[in-house]
Each structure stands twice: as structure tokens, then as C-alpha cells.
Simulated assay, not measured.
Amino acid sequence: MAPPRAYWKGSLKLSLVSCPVALYPASTSVEKTRFHMINTETGNRLKQQMVDEGTGEVVEKDQKGRGYEVRKGKYVEIEKDELEAVQIESTHTIEIDSFVPAEEIDKRYLNNPYYIAPEGKAGIDAFAVIRDAMKDKDRVALARIVLSNREHVIAIEPLGKGLLATTLRYPYELREPDDYFDGIKSPKISKDMVELAGHILDTKAAHFDPSKFKDDYETALKALVKRKAAGKSIKVAEPEEKSDNVVSLMDALKQSLEGKKSGKSAPRRAPAARGRGRSAKKAHRSSARARKAS
């Protein structure tokens, strides 16, 4: 198996101590089911083109540029060399600025995770010293890195033999919670209700285990694609009718707790396919593909 390809290479620097490292994305979407846009009449894949908003004409590659909208419909063009002039100098260095307690990092700031590993044998001692010092002090490093011409703040922490780096959002990228929470009323909730809810929480107590995460929608998508590719029919499920029964909050809590105690739980259903069949149109598409194949 070929070694993974590094997303970024450079140096990890702590004061006068530095070592060569490589950055690898810690997450992937390769296994997710993806769809392409196709012509439903011919079955051919579609290609996207850039079109001038004013003239409607297709724009060639050498005519494309970057522009910032200063007012409605008015753009100032930014040249490539002008962008390069403002690039940050720390392009190939992860500069550690400080160490903070992990519990102080607001989870809303966490963005994309990466693995940091030593690059080659040179500097592996320095890498291990920085990693183990963070383990001993139970601290997370805050550093700066340039990715895709943008400077990011990253949180670095030990993970096994390597390091886990997570890019952090800037404050201007977060929305204020008050805009969403200020309108929430504060009803009077009885102590009995809270205690009942607490008992339900106890029945669902567990430990964090991502191996138990099941993507039911992805499983259903794969099954759908497999059946279609095999030429099998797809049965579109009818939408469920919503119950009009009104149950008081206290009754709902009691019934939930009783159901958990007896070991009963509502069965999980795979996501239903949406939409209605269009048999006539599908038949027309199939005949078009058949003509193409012949």
C-alpha cells in the first residue's frame, strides 16, 4: 500500500527548536456516495461552463479573473501578482505561539482536523520532545499555519505517536448565540419533570464510541444505487401520516421511562425515498439510452 500523500510539508517550530513535519487530512469523504449531473435524455454526463452574467456568453479560461464586489454590480479586479504580494511569510512553518488548557477551547471554533507526523528521520527527536512535553503539561498548542494562501490558527495536541492539529475559526466567522436564544421563553418546569427526564438520561448512559455510529442514509443510498444498477424496480414509500394525538409532557416522560425499563423501543426505519414515480418519462429516458447504445 502506497504511503498517504502529504497535504502540506514544512517545519514545526517552538522557540529555537524546530523539526520537519508533514500534514495529512484526518478526515475523508471518499466513501460517501456521490452523484454526477447527467442529461436525463441521453445519459451523458454534463459539463459546467462559466457564463458572463450580462452577455450570456461562455467565458474562456484566459478571460477569468478575481473581483471583489464594492457595490451592487460593481467589482474591483484583483490581479494574481497583487494577491501574491500580501501572502504571509510563514508559508512553510507552523509557529507555536502559546499553550492553553484544552478545556478552555470553545468547541464552536473547531474546524478541520489534520494529522502531523515527522517528515523523515531528521528532527524526530525534537518532534518527540515537543509532543511529550505537551503530554506532561496536559496543554494544547496554539500555532499559525498557511493553507491555500490563508493563515489559520490551529490547535495542536498529542495523539498516539503523532500530533492532532485542528484549524480554528476566527471570531468573525461565528454567529452570536443571543441572536437565536434571546427569544426562548423560560417556562416554569416542575421538579418532577426534570427528575423524570434525568432518569431517562440514566437509561441511555453510555461511553463515546464512534464505531457504533451508523449512517442509515448512506446505507440506503448504496442499496438504492445497487438495485438501480441491477435493473431492479424501486418502490417509493408513501409519506407517513402524522398522529394528531396530543400527549402531555408529563405523560410523554412517564411513557418514555416505562418503555426503557421494559426494554421496548421504537424500531428504526431506513430513510424513505422521496418523490413520485414518473414512469412515462423514465421509459423515454431508457429508450434514449438504448438508442445510444445501439
Rank of each mutant, 00 (worst) to 15 (best):
E104A: 13
K61F: 08
P20T: 09
E151R: 14
W8Q: 00
S211C: 03
T219P: 01
T28C: 03
K32I: 01
L147H: 05
K282E: 12
T93W: 00
M134G: 06
I200M: 01
M193W: 02
A270M: 12
G198P: 00
S186V: 10
K254V: 13
N111Y: 10
I88T: 12
A117I: 01
E53R: 04
G231M: 04
F181H: 06
R169W: 03
E60D: 12
A26H: 05
M193Q: 09
K226V: 08
K228S: 08
D192P: 01
G54K: 15
G65Y: 02
S286L: 14
E173S: 01
A26L: 12
Y170P: 00
D138G: 06
A2I: 11
D202L: 03
K235G: 07
I124P: 02
P113D: 08
K191D: 15
K232E: 15
E176I: 03
G259K: 08
A252R: 04
S243Q: 00
R45V: 09
V17T: 14
D138V: 11
V17S: 09
E241A: 07
E240M: 08
L249Q: 02
R285A: 13
T55A: 09
Q255N: 08
K185Y: 06
L83M: 15
R285Q: 12
R291H: 07
L174P: 03
S211E: 12
G67C: 08
G54S: 09
E84M: 11
I88R: 12
K264V: 07
T93S: 05
L142H: 09
T42D: 10
K222G: 02
H92P: 01
K226Q: 10
V30E: 14
I145T: 10
A133Q: 06
E95Y: 09
I116T: 08
R274G: 14
L12N: 10
V21N: 05
P3R: 13
R5Q: 11
S256M: 09
P239I: 12
K161D: 13
A223V: 09
P171T: 04
Y24H: 11
H199T: 07
F181W: 10
I189C: 06
A290K: 15
V21W: 06
H199E: 15
M250K: 14
T28L: 02
S248C: 03
E84G: 01
I38V: 14
V59I: 15
C19T: 15
L159W: 12
E195C: 02
I116L: 12
D216N: 04
P171L: 04
Y7Q: 07
K121R: 13
S294K: 14
I145C: 04
S27Y: 00
E238N: 10
R108I: 03
I124W: 02
E103L: 06
D244K: 06
E238S: 13
K47Q: 10
A270T: 08
L224K: 04
R45A: 13
V236W: 06
L14F: 15
K222Y: 01
R289L: 15
G120N: 10
G277Y: 05
V59M: 06
P118A: 02
